[in-house]
Design a protein around this nucleic acid. Structure first.
Length: 470
RNA sequence: GGCGACGUGGCGAAGUGGGAACGCUGCGGUCUGCAAAACCGCCAUGAGCCGGUUCGACUCCGGCCGUCGCCUCCA
């Protein structure tokens, strides 16, 4: 079985900036440099916040297995209006609160088991870079101090609006700008207010960074002024990413990111958001569904489609995950009683599945089609185990191929050896076999009920009973 | 009001100018003492609605209706 990736073209991704699917670029050293907007840490993250984390973490996994070096940066915003508000409400210092929820964010997303980004910068670590960038923007005339704040001058940046397709003169103006030249000018630096318990010195007086400048500064610090992919939720396209472009390109004079990749929103009767109050915390979803189901749930829908979150969809996903796991169990059984020959249909199906799988992911990270390919493999494996059973070498090769696909999606654990049932459960299963042999089926069924009550399931197979966790 | 995304079977969800993937559910069958799993087969003559282009449109264009996101903090 070939290990080469059966594709010739470069992976392609849709860019909000060009509104087309574009070939992925690499930076001059061959690395794909990717920056993804992470959470503001003023509370535990919800499953909506987890979507970009999953999408871009798995994209990184895919690109890595596709042979690219990837530098994946995902920031944590730990200075923000909402953090002050939350700190006041909880009666703790804002920096203490931010650090607590930063750690909780890391712990929650660790449970997804998709690895960590290479760098997870925080705002508090980047004040010097932020201040330097603001100073630079003032130098080139794109920013101005005003009453202790510093604002970006939007009408001096010619490309303002190019990402979100807006024009300055069409935008709804809701905010009067008594300290701003233009109502849509946005804050780069906010002067210290008495009720805020942190502040940093700057040439414009004590204060803190505005919301957008941090990402410009952190992205440049971690990836340089120009990189390959900038990701995040579509709700950030305006104003956040628009402002990032204005700041970074205004200060650095080069395009910030080649591809702007945005995931669509999770829905729970309208967009899931903390301000709407219709949220499910990531940790609660993990407790209830487990990481396998949750990861598969995010991946079975394309990242640019809205994703309704609900019990029915998760239950559906859980069944899909079970059927993937069952194919691995079928391989377990077959390996304990292999056949003699070579199953040509299995070999061919796995090649096709692998090809379809990688082609789908090359095409704008099409995970739903990758899932379809995965099920081609599931069925091919089940057919081979039931039918013309292959020899041990082919079974092992089939497992390797199957696990290789699962691994790209972060689901290789579905094929891991399962923890064996405890001895007392296995004893019940053995006893049940005796009862069955003696045709004492009432006793056999009672024993099965007891096994199930203990959380295990018995499946009678030609290789004997298979006891699996329920 | 402006910008954008989208409307496909019971549900979820794809591709495609000329046979509507895939998964779940449901139905029938095989296997099984039964069950579970698996396997085999069936399930949209139609793709929000109305026009247009075309030999031919679900697929392109226009209009309408509807849903959602952004325009204010938001993944």
């Amino acid at each position: 079985m070939s290990t080469a990736i059966p594709t010739t073209d470069a992976p392609r991704l849709y860019s909000t900036l060009s509104r087309t699917v574009e070939p992925l670029s690499t930076s001059p050293d061959g690395t794909v440099r990717m920056y993804v907007c992470g959470p503001t840490v003023y509370g535990p993250i919800h499953v909506g916040n987890a979507r970009p984390f999953v999408v871009f973490s798995v994209l990184r996994r895919y690109l890595t297995r596709r042979g690219f070096a990837v530098r994946h940066v995902c920031n944590v915003t730990d200075i923000n209006d909402k953090i002050y508000v939350a700190a006041t409400r909880e009666g703790v210092r804002s920096d203490v609160l931010a650090e607590r929820y930063r750690a909780e964010y890391v712990a929650d997303t660790d449970r997804l088991g998709l690895g960590r980004p290479d760098v997870e910068p925080t705002v508090t670590e980047h004040l010097p870079e932020i201040i330097a960038m603001i100073a630079r923007l003032i130098d080139v005339g794109l920013a101005y101090p005003s009453a202790g704040d510093v604002y970006f001058r939007v009408d001096r940046f010619p490309g303002y609006g190019k990402l979100s397709g807006r024009r300055l003169d069409e935008m709804l103006v809701t905010e009067p700008g008594e300290t701003k030249e233009h109502p849509l000018d946005f804050a780069l630096w906010k002067g210290h207010k008495p009720d805020e318990d942190t502040s940093w010195d700057s040439p414009w007086g004590p204060g803190r960074p505005g919301w957008h400048i941090e990402c410009s500064a952190m992205a440049a610090a971690a990836l340089g002024p120009s990189f390959d992919v900038h990701g995040g939720g579509i709700d950030l396209a305006f104003p956040h990413h628009e402002n990032e472009i204005a700041q970074s390109e205004g200060a650095n004079g080069v395009p910030m990111a080649r591809i702007w990749a945005h995931n669509e929103m999770l829905e729970l009767g309208g967009k899931m958001s903390k301000s709407e109050g219709n949220i499910v915390l990531l940790r609660d979803a993990l407790d209830r569904w487990g990481r396998d189901v949750l990861v598969a749930f995010f991946l079975r829908t394309h990242y640019r489609s809205k994703l309704p979150f609900g019990d029915a969809a998760l239950e559906d996903t859980a069944r899909q995950v079970d059927s993937i796991r069952n194919a691995a169990r079928a391989l377990d059984r077959a390996e304990s009683a292999p056949g003699e020959g070579f199953n040509r249909e299995l070999a061919e199906s796995l090649v096709v599945a692998r090809q379809d799988f990688f082609q789908a992911l090359d095409d704008d990270f099409h995970t739903p089609r990758a899932f379809a390919a995965l099920f081609e493999a599931v069925h091919a494996i089940n057919r081979a185990v039931e039918g013309e059973r292959p020899d041990i070498d082919q079974l092992r090769a089939a497992r390797a191929a199957f696990v290789g696909l699962l691994d790209v999606l972060g689901l290789a654990g579905l094929a891991d050896p399962e923890p064996g049932a405890p001895a007392e459960i296995l004893a019940l299963a053995t006893e049940r076999e005796g009862a069955r042999a003696a045709r004492e089926f009432a006793l056999a069924d009672e024993l099965r009920d007891r096994i199930e009550a203990a959380g295990y399931q018995v499946r009678d197979t030609p290789e004997g009973p298979q006891v699996t966790p329920k």
